[in-house]
Simulated assay, not measured.
Amino acid sequence: MTKAAIVILAGNESHSDYGRLANGLEAAKEFVEADGDEVEVIFDGAGTQWIPELEAEDSDYHELYLSVRDDAAVCDYCSEAFGVSETVEDAGITVLGEYDGHPSIRSLVDDDYEIITF
């Protein structure tokens, strides 16, 4: 059994950011589809800005996002800082803030998760 935490840090300002998002979601989907694997998808920093777009049904990445959404969470502090906390709350996505308002990466490492950033 493999345990991975996919952390999406890329914002949504450039073509390369879209590529990083797509690659992060594809990697997470691979873990979701693998029998016995565990995955956490965490939108952190500028990556929190993706939530409004990904929640929109007309987004190019909406279906891919839905394939991993049940395993997704968003940084509490950063969702507020980047102005998306209301969308996150409306979507019912898990909000993490175990360490000074941010997800605890140390806890994930302590739980034997491999941390992969995009």
Rank of each mutant, 00 (worst) to 15 (best):
M1Y: 08
M1K: 12
T2F: 07
K3I: 02
A4K: 12
A5L: 06
V7M: 07
L9K: 15
A10G: 06
A10C: 08
S14P: 01
D17W: 01
D17E: 04
Y18N: 10
L25P: 07
E30P: 00
E30W: 04
F31W: 06
A34Q: 15
V39H: 05
A46C: 01
A46R: 13
G47Y: 00
G47V: 03
G47K: 05
Q49M: 09
Q49F: 01
Q49G: 11
I51P: 03
E53L: 09
A56D: 15
D60M: 10
Y61L: 11
L64H: 10
Y65S: 09
Y65I: 04
L66E: 14
S67F: 04
V68W: 01
D70R: 11
D71C: 05
V74Q: 12
C75N: 12
D76Y: 11
Y77T: 14
Y77M: 07
C78I: 04
E80G: 03
E80L: 02
E86S: 12
T87Q: 04
V88L: 00
V95R: 13
G97R: 14
Y99T: 13
H102Q: 10
H102A: 05
I105F: 11
Y113M: 09
E114W: 10
I115T: 12
T117L: 08
F118W: 15
F118N: 12
